[in-house]
Amino acid sequence: MTDNFPPDSADRPDGPVPSDGRRSFIKQATGFLGLALAPPLISQAERLTAISKKVEGVTEMRLKVNGTVRTISAEPRVTLLDALREKLDLTGSKKGCDHGQCGACTVLVDGRRINSCLTLAVMNQGKEITTVEGLAKGEELHPLQASFIEHDGFQCGYCTPGQLMSGVACLKEGHAKTDGDVREWMSGNLCRCGAYPNIVAAIRQVEKSGFKS
């Protein structure tokens, strides 16, 4: 850690549940706002594609998670991580730092790994979201999950869902060809237990097996 990182405050004023009693204020304006603002010379076809969306207060959102479209009611300020954990009961994705520093919240969006704590649920509608709950096929573990067990790739397990999601992406990206590559390209996932050597071994084994995700 560098001292650029701030002294952390224990009472962060964030969180998924608003306490201001305004949850009854529901408003969603979906309309042709772009049309109203468009200059007169713009073509008709361009106008019709200009559908803007304004969201205010608790609103229905549709999220496609692990292949299933699910509807939630949430304010625009709800992060994707909080929506997954608090609204959809998908508590595999973990809230470690809530600031994009630890990687415990890593999920795939349209096949790319991201920190779900630093994106809004409302911005992820219409996208394919994959969480750790979506890795296994029924009772059959994803090869990386099996490899983590074989190599003891965890101790307390808190960072593991993020490590797995990041590891799956790392393999898919082709960034797991050497141990050094894995260490560099997994650097966004911290493990306070220090299971790093075993995590590297687990990912490398899957890479060497020729598994294509």
Partner: peptide, 18 residues
């Protein structure tokens, strides 16, 4: 995080104007 409204802009002028 304080509450806010969200606007998905589809044209530059709509975003810059807002």
């Amino acid at each position: 995080m304080n509450n806010f409204s969200y606007l998905q802009a589809t044209q530059p002028k709509e975003a810059t104007g807002a």
